[in-house]
Structures are given as structure tokens and as C-alpha cells.
Design a protein around this nucleic acid. Structure first.
Length: 626
DNA sequence: TATGACTGCCC
DNA sequence: ATTCTGC
DNA sequence: GCAGAATGGGCAGTCATA
């Protein structure tokens, strides 16, 4: 199939606001894709080169793509960057510049989907000395074989951001649309659906049957995707064998399951109102891991279904030893643990675990604990449909003796006060909060369905201090933020000793579109060509501003920072905010914003965290009590 | 050999 | 991760 | 309420270059 044909559909989808119409156009496109191109088309639509667990990455980010556009079009880096700041999308930049190329290129025949995909796979495989140049050459070659529309999408693909307005759910919906006919051609199924609808309608409209069938098929496709994690392959099987192509997809150790996500609520009371009696688990601040045991083989997947087994040789061993089942899939939160002090390390320490070199050595320095919290598969049985309470029982049964793997701490309650006490106890012990789980719910993969609800300290205003920060600059927006001329802020705390404003965080969320406009209009009036004299920041915004406006900001945590200058001294790092979000403008003078001293004080008060690590390394954080 | 820009992926 | 917005 | 697209700090690893 020609790549340009796909790009024409992409363009139509991108310009469409209506979800329903987008889905229809996508369905139409997919109906035209031959089986041998199907996986590629799906992956490219997702801005990817394969499912997450296959880890095929182009290795071309913004920086290299800017170079690549230069190579392809003959424009200077500066010109490209300037245009990027204005339009907010490198694909559009490439499309425009390729249209008025300085070097007239050889338009060498038509690009096929196969050609584009295989070139990106080749790009992804290049490594070692000189590889960046080779990648850029191949990228430029693709651009120079393209028309403008193709250039736009060829640019967006390696960046992983297609800006089409379609994600996995829309792709599944489109597939369901395309196979509803086949689904209903099964007489039994049609009759069954018609029967069910008779309860609602005296005279069942044909459209209703189709709609209900589509919903049911969507659920089937989603169910398969949830245990298979490869939408391209699902679409290919459908194309090749129709609905029976899905039959062979079943839960299997070694193939990641899309993890359940949690919703949020701001109080214990609301959680109980929503769930009634529920299990309340401690929420540990580490890495969420999905462990697969298949006889002697263990694979570990991340929350995004990446294969991260190489990071955890110790956990692999523990699964082999401690899990009393031939095959199993279970989930938990992995954290670094200090065996001497019996304390858990904060996330920033856990994440320093190595991925490739000196893995074993680091694993000894920072041993792990795994708090298991759910079970999806055991001894050949899919446990996902079982009620949570039963999965929990079985999980406890298969965890054998050992230090590494244990069950997450939890209580069962239908009382808001009890839940609140457990939450507060968790907070006091330095944990993130709690997750409440519906006792009767199955494992609902890949969805936020209020079966799991999280409550963190930062959701509760009375437990979480906000800070007042001075805006010292801003960044141009990308994508739909480009139209506002502002996509984020650079903010600072006030250092009384030196009368300077020192950067502490960028802010990119919490502001409405109206607020973005207001910010741009206010800040552009006090823009400065250079960094103002009283500002200390290693991060350079697109536009510096006079330190004047103060905003209220909420964050989950204060961390030591290698990038921000707030509180930084020679040889010791500064401070930053974790998960910052803007709340509102404050009517204050810049000098009245939160001070460096206050930030340091707030950092000290977080749990029992220390500034120095046990090894006295700079920037490291100490353990927290549990 | 050391450093910094860049990338991908954790939260 | 958090948050906002169109449907 | 769903789905999608904006945006955050900061880690290890890769590659180019001083």
C-alpha cells in the first residue's frame, strides 16, 4: 500500500473534531489496508514501530529531528527552531520547508508503507560510532522521497506523537465497526442481541442491533488486547482470518497484560460511598512491576509493558524461589530497601537501579522489596475474572518464604474513619497514600473504571502545603498550546540572602486555556531580552520575564535537584518540586513568594528523609521509615 | 578520558 | 505523574 | 465519564566532541 494514501486518511482524521467521524474514517482506512501492511499501519498510527514490549525505538528525538530536517531541506538549524517555536509542531515545520526546499530533491518514486516502516526499523537498529549521522541520512532520504503531507507524518512518527486525536480505544472502536457485520452474521448472536433488546423496545430498530453488536465486539477486542498488548497483531489477525483470528489469543506468561489503572478521589468518605466495603492497600512509591513466571523463566514488565527484566536479577531469582506455582502472572510495587536500618528509600533512590552495566553490584547496594498486590494467572488458570478478594487469597497462597516478595499491607473496611486512619498511618510512615479496591471486581485491565481508587496526601488540601512562586520566564507551547504562544512557565523561589530568584520548577499543568491566554498577555508585556540580573537559573526559557507575577503551586513532594538552582551550593544540588501544578494567581510582590529557606524547611519535614545518602553521595536521599 | 546534549522511560 | 477540554 | 493531548522532575544509557 502507498504511504501517501495512509497520510491522506491521517490528514482527514487530524482535521476532524467529531469522535464518531474520526472513528469512521479510521475504520474506512483500515478496511483498505491489506493484511501484510496491517501491523505496520497500526504501529505507525500510534507513532510507534511495534508494541511496547518489543522496544523498537527510532532513537530520533527533537534534537536530532531538527538536524534531520536541516539535512533534508537545506535550512539552517536556527531557522527550523524559530519556525518550530511559532507553529509548535516539527511535522508541520518539515511539511512547510520540504515544500519550498532549498535543495531541489530527486522525487524518487512512491513511498510504500512497507518502505517507510522498514526504513524506520533499520534506523532503530543503528548504533555505535557514526550511527547518528546514518540515522539522519536515512531520515532525510525518506523526507526527500515524500510530498509535504508524507513529510509531516514521517517527522512525527519517530517523535512518537502523531497528533491525530486517535489512541488505542479509537483503533479498537474502528476495528469493532469493521467487523460488526461478521459478528452479526452469526445467527445465534443476532438472535441473542435482538432478544435482549426486546426488553427495551416494542419494535427493535435495526440500528440498535448493530450498535449493541458493535459494543459487544468492542468489548471482545478490548479483552483480547488487554491480555495481548499488541493491537497491530490483533488487527492483522482480524484482517487475515476475520473474527476467528482472535480465538487463539489467550492469557500467557511472557506476554504482558495491560495494567489496571486507578481513579482518584479526594477523601475517604467518597471512597466508601463509591465502593462500600473494600480492601485498602498501602501505596508504595516505587516501580510497578508485572512479574511473569513460566516454568523456569521469569520476565518482568513495567507499567507501560516494557520488558525491564535486566534491571532485576535479584527479583528474577526471588520469583523463582518464592513463587509456589509453575506458571504465574502477578503484580506489585518494587522499592529499594535498606536492610541495616529497615527503611525504604524514596523513588529517586529506587530508580537509580542500573539497567545494563553493574546491575548486579547495584542490586546488592540497593536490595529490593516487592509488595505484591494482585494475581492474574496461576498454574494455567486465568484469575482475572475472579473477584479481587479471591485473587488476593490465591496470591497469598502462592507466595512462599523469603525476604524479597511479600504481600502489600492492607485492611478491609466499610468505614470511612477506619480507612482514613489507615491512610494517615501510611502517610506518617512515609508512604504515598492508599489504593482502595472493590472486593468483587475482576481485574479490569487497561482501564480506569473506579474498581481501584487512589488517595494521596496531595489530593487533600489540608495536608498539603502549597507554595507561592515567582514567574521568571515562559516557554512557547507545542501542539494545541502553540496558539496561545505559551505552554509552560519557569518559576522561582526568593533567596533573601542574595536578593535573587532561583529556579525551582517549570509548570505546565493546572492552567485553563483562558489562563494560558491571560498569562501570555501579561508576561509578554514584561518580557526581557536577557536573563534579569536578580535571576539565577541554569534553565533557559524561550522568554525571560521580569520577576513580577506570583502564582500558587501545589506539588506532591520536594526533591533534591540537579537542574534547579533553588538552594544549590557548590557541590550540593538544589531543590525542585515533584508533580507541580498551577492553582491560581496570587496578589503578592515577587519578594513575598516562598523563600529558599522555607523550601529547605519543607524538605526536611517530609517524613524522616535525610539530605545525605547512606554512602554520602551528593544529591542522594536517605531512607524513610516505614 | 571527561563532559554535555540527547533519548527513552520511570514516576 | 497531573490537569484540562471536546464530545 | 471517556479519550486524548498538553505539561512536570529526574534517572541510566548513548553518542559526539572537547
Amino acid at each position: 500500500m502507498e504511504f501517501s494514501e495512509i497520510c491522506e486518511y491521517f490528514d482527514r482524521i487530524e482535521s476532524m473534531a467529531s469522535r464518531l467521524e474520526m472513528t469512521q474514517i479510521l475504520a474506512q482506512m483500515l478496511s483498505k489496508v491489506p493484511a501484510q501492511d496491517m501491523r505496520h499501519v497500526i504501529y505507525l498510527s500510534q507513532g510507534a514501530l511495534g508494541p511496547r514490549h518489543h522496544s523498537i525505538e527510532a532513537g530520533l528525538g527533537e534534537g536530532l529531528i531538527v538536524q534531520g530536517i536541516g539535512k533534508a531541506t537545506g535550512y539552517q538549524k536556527e531557522e527550523i527552531l524559530k519556525m518550530y517555536k511559532e507553529v509548535g509542531d516539527l511535522g508541520t515545520v518539515c511539511q512547510r520547508l520540504a515544500g519550498r526546499k532549498k535543495q531541489r530533491a530527486l522525487f524518487s518514486g512512491k513511498l510504500t508503507v512497507e518502505k517507510v516502516f522498514s526504513n524506520f526499523v533499520k534506523i532503530s537498529q543503528l548504533s555505535g560510532s557514526g550511527s547518528q549521522d546514518s540515522k539522519l541520512r536515512m531520515f532525510a532520504e525518506l523526507i526527500n522521497s515524500s510530498g509535504g503531507t508524507e513529510a509531516k507524518y514521517i517527522t512525527r512518527i519517530p517523535l512518537g506523537n502523531m497528533r491525530l486525536g486517535i489512541g488505542d480505544p479509537t483503533i479498537m472502536e474502528a476495528l469493532a465497526l469493521n467487523y460488526t457485520g461478521e459478528f452479526l452474521s452469526d445467527r445465534k448472536m443476532r438472535r441473542k442481541i435482538a432478544e435482549e433488546l426486546k426488553e427495551k423496545f416494542d419494535d427493535v430498530p435495526e440500528g440498535e442491533v448493530a450498535r449493541k453488536a458493535r459494543q459487544r465486539l468492542r468489548a471482545i477486542i478490548e479483552g483480547k488486547y488487554n491480555i495481548f498488548s499488541d493491537l497491530g497483531e490483533i488487527a492483522r489477525r482480524l484482517k487475515e482470518n476475520g473474527l476467528k483470528g482472535l480465538d487463539e489469543i489467550s492469557i500467557q506468561a511472557g506476554t504482558p497484560i495491560r495494567p489496571t489503572l486507578a481513579e482518584r478521589l479526594p477523601s475517604s468518605k467518597e471512597i466508601i460511598e463509591k465502593l462500600g466495603k473494600c480492601e485498602v492497600q498501602a501505596k508504595y512509591d516505587g516501580l510497578r512491576v508485572q512479574c511473569h513466571k513460566e516454568n523456569g523463566k521469569v520476565t518482568i514488565f513495567s507499567r507501560q509493558s516494557e520488558n525491564i527484566t535486566p534491571m532485576f536479577p535479584d527479583l528474577v531469582e526471588a520469583v523463582k524461589v518464592q513463587i509456589k506455582a509453575q506458571t504465574a502472572i502477578f503484580e506489585g510495587e518494587a522499592l529499594a530497601f535498606n536492610e541495616e536500618t529497615e527503611q525504604y528509600f524514596p523513588f529517586q533512590v529506587t530508580i537509580t537501579r542500573k539497567r545494563k552495566y553493574d546491575v548486579a553490584q547495584k542490586a546488592i547496594e540497593l536490595p529490593l522489596r516487592l509488595f505484591a498486590f494482585d494475581l492474574m494467572f496461576a498454574n494455567g488458570e486465568n484469575t482475572m475474572p475472579l473477584p479481587f478478594i479471591e485473587r488476593g487469597r490465591r496470591l497469598a497462597q502462592i507466595i512462599g518464604k523469603g525476604d524479597t516478595i511479600r504481600i502489600a499491607k492492607s485492611i478491609v473496611t466499610d468505614d470511612a474513619k477506619e480507612l482514613e486512619d489507615f491512610f494517615l498511618e501510611s502517610i506518617e510512615n512515609g508512604l504515598e497514600g492508599i489504593i482502595a479496591k472493590d472486593l468483587n471486581a475482576p481485574y479490569i485491565a487497561g482501564a480506569r473504571k473506579f474498581a481501584w481508587i487512589k488517595l494521596k496526601r496531595s489530593y487533600k488540601g489540608e495536608l498539603n502545603d502549597s507554595v507561592d512562586l515567582t514567574i521568571i520566564g515562559y516557554f512557547r507551547g507545542r501542539g494545541k498550546r502553540a496558539q496561545f504562544g505559551l505552554g509552560g512557565l519557569l518559576t522561582a523561589v526568593y533567596d533573601e540572602k542574595s536578593d535573587t530568584f532561583r529556579s525551582v520548577t517549570k509548570i505546565g499543568t493546572g492552567m485553563s486555556e483562558q489562563m494560558l491566554s491571560e498569562l501570555e498577555s501579561k508576561l509578554s508585556k514584561i518580557a526581557k531580552k536577557q536573563k534579569p540580573a536578580r535571576v539565577e537559573s541554569d534553565i533557559i526559557p524561550d522568554v525571560w520575564t521580569e520577576p513580577k507575577y506570583v502564582i500558587e503551586v501545589v506539588a506532591d513532594e520536594i526533591t533534591r535537584s540537579p537542574m534547579h538552582t533553588a538552594g544549590a551550593q557548590k557541590g550540593s544540588p538544589g531543590y525542585a518540586l515533584r508533580f507541580p501544578r498551577m492553582i491560581k494567581f496570587r496578589e503578592k510582590r515577587a519578594e513575598e513568594s516562598t523563600s529558599v529557606a522555607e523550601i529547605i524547611e519543607m524538605h526536611k519535614k517530609q517524613g524522616t528523609r535525610q539530605v545525605e545518602s547512606p554512602k554520602d553521595g551528593p544529591g542522594a536521599q536517605g531512607p524513610q521509615r516505614i
